[in-house]
Design a binder for these strands. Structure first.
Lengths: 226, 226, 226, 226
DNA sequence: TATGAATGAGAGTTCATTCAT
DNA sequence: GATGAATGAACTCTCATTCAT
């Protein structure tokens, strides 16, 4: 077997394990996930899982990075048709809270809550969390800067603080959604999140037919808000 | 031993165990907490822990409720000197994000992140989480209603949505603080949280000497923002 | 159950586990001994073994100490009829190399070789080994001093060096016996060990009927040398 | 590639693996040595190690034989300047207990203790041990015969028994040295071993300047006894 | 109430060995 | 010869939970 094939094969295994891990951790949580379960579902031995990921924490870190990379990669595509800053923000928040058309964009919030929970006590995991957070804030910053340049947005504070506040609000909504708090479904969360974003960014937003039409780019109508 | 003494003794044990559990779960997380560790620190046998709390989940539920009750109880006292709705809100947010003068008010955020993480997959825990959330939103609602009545606040949406949005933002900030994201310390979080609350509630707030003076009701000066 | 009964029960378990461990480690060696095997043979769960001996090394240390204590305790009894220093030495060497009438005195040399092997790299085990060695040399010293006082023995060097040399020779013979080197059986080793001891201690010793008669105190005739 | 080159290459690999195995087994013991560690340090794959040595026991056997052959080969050279039987014996004991100028002559006692320990339960290893022992005794026999012929030595028993006794004593001292018993350093062991050898062989030996000078053939002065 | 010995079903991890390439 | 992915059986150790006392 040629060297390049080896590398491909190796990468394939790595990805296969990460995908499976991602699935199972999302389903039942990190601490309820067994290496043996991942191996079984992937159709390999548990020894092989350890061969690629020496410890269980490595697996969590790998799975989170994998999810993150996949999410951002596919987010670009999903937002391809959004042109104004408002539409971009709307799309980002919609996909963040409700999900997108691909499995990767159907963000597994339970994975994130696990990550936060582990991050408070494990520095390696905390570092991964910070990485993610920074990436998300940078993305938001870019969109807001575009909106300011295009005179769509007007800020009431510094851009840094605005981003921090909005990101915090979005995370908080994600907790509501992940914990399935009855009255705050993903769609309700999206709606409120956009209204308060518009307040902070000085633009007008209301959930009308135009919004509904636009959102069909990201998910099926039935997932939409009333 | 008289019946009443039995009950007292029983309640004492219950509380003693809960306090210890709270301590240890906060320190190292729910899944890293061993029944045996709680028993050892409480100076009792692990069998006795199981006698009062038949399963480990019961212990988590109990500890969270205990923390919650303690927190609200002491919050009242802490806010005794705050009279206007603005001051009340300020105090609530300060204590929520930074902490208060008593151990109970030094909210162990890591406990809450654990709770969220477990809540996504365990209905009993999810119920406790919802209880907490409802209580917190009711508290916020009361204060906002008072502010509206006193013409301190003006809303840009329904009161329900405003409360949901603010509560989400506060939770998101709590994640930042708990995961020790470098640039968002508890004090920074408080500051930004108040600025954006003022935007949503139509009041003016800026972090000046008067605020600093007021905050000294809740914690020592050195914990204050610049 | 009364406290004293608890302690008795606890000691019983401890001893039961140590005895079983001793047996199995002797049979197949420390690194081939499984906690589960000990548990199974003792008729208990492996968790209980770990309850009494938190690590496998603790079990080895415990087993060695137990064997050692048992050996010395029973050595006293076995030597009760030996009066002269020569007879005492003879008895000690005979039991050391060939064994005695009780299981404890049928020294499991393989256990000792394991101990030496582990001692080169594990300080805890090395300490136990040193303990044993010191005890054995003290025993030899006492007997030799008695022999000198009784004018049975005459030394050609210091008593310290004599003891070190003799102890080394006995250990070396033990290796021969444990590794079942064909021509050096336990009996042959005993015979040569005594002849060279007599050289170092200036007494006359030859393996005659009187010796054979005396040795019957320690083991059955068939175990005796031709 | 020509057949002879293949064989050379093959021998090279074999030796390379044995040297590395010897190193690592000496450092951390047989049962703590991993095939993968040997492969890594040798810069090859673990599959290749198994290609040359089908089982781990083969590797131990090979390593011991390799060490043994190296030791005897270099012993000859080291003793080249020793002419009398006394000097030869002195040199052999010195190198046996203290070591020589080459790595091979710095006998790794821990390897030998491992060998003994395994030999009690593994017949293949026991056979290797016997081989070694026989070789060592033959060497001692030759020297003693030379000493008798040259009237340097006078025996108090048969030559066979004398060799067995001395070999046992040397092994026993090796245990002391390997287990780093504080008061019996390699140098002390050598000194006592020689004094008691002289007793058994009827020659005069005392550790004076002449001895010290002679020993400088084998190792550096600082390693010498006072 | 209270103890703590006892359980037992794993858990993650290890590692000699195999084998397709 | 040489690789290193892959296996899988086993190991020590963990820990919530049970239960006789």
């Amino acid at each position: 077997m040629a060297r390049s094939e080896n590398i491909e094969q190796s990468d394939f295994r790595r990805q296969q394990i990460l995908m499976t891990a991602l699935e199972i951790i999302s389903e039942r949580g990190y601490s309820e996930t067994r290496i043996a379960d991942i191996a079984k579902r992937a159709g390999i031995s548990s020894g092989l899982v350890m061969y690629y990921f020496p410890t269980k924490v490595d697996l969590l870190v790998g799975a989170v990075r994998y999810a993150e990379d996949g999410w951002y990669g596919e987010l670009e595509d999903a937002l391809a048709d959004a042109t104004t800053a408002t539409e971009l923000l709307e799309g980002m928040v919609a996909i963040f809270l409700i999900g997108g058309r691909t499995p990767m964009l159907q963000m597994q919030w339970s994975l994130w809550l696990d990550l936060w929970s582990q991050a408070t006590r494990n520095e390696t995991i905390a570092a991964v969390h910070r990485e993610n957070d920074t990436r998300w804030r940078e993305k938001l910053t870019t969109v807001i800067e575009q909106g300011i340049a295009a005179k769509e947005f007007v800020l009431f504070g510094t851009i840094e603080n605005t981003v921090i506040a909005l990101a915090a609000m979005f995370d908080g909504f994600a907790v509501n959604v992940a914990c399935k708090e009855g009255n705050v479904t993903a769609e309700v969360a999206f709606n409120i999140a956009m209204r308060f974003s518009s307040l902070s960014l000085g633009f007008v937003w209301q959930n009308d037919d135009a919004v509904a039409t636009r959102l069909q780019r990201y998910f099926e109508p039935e997932a939409l808000l009333a």
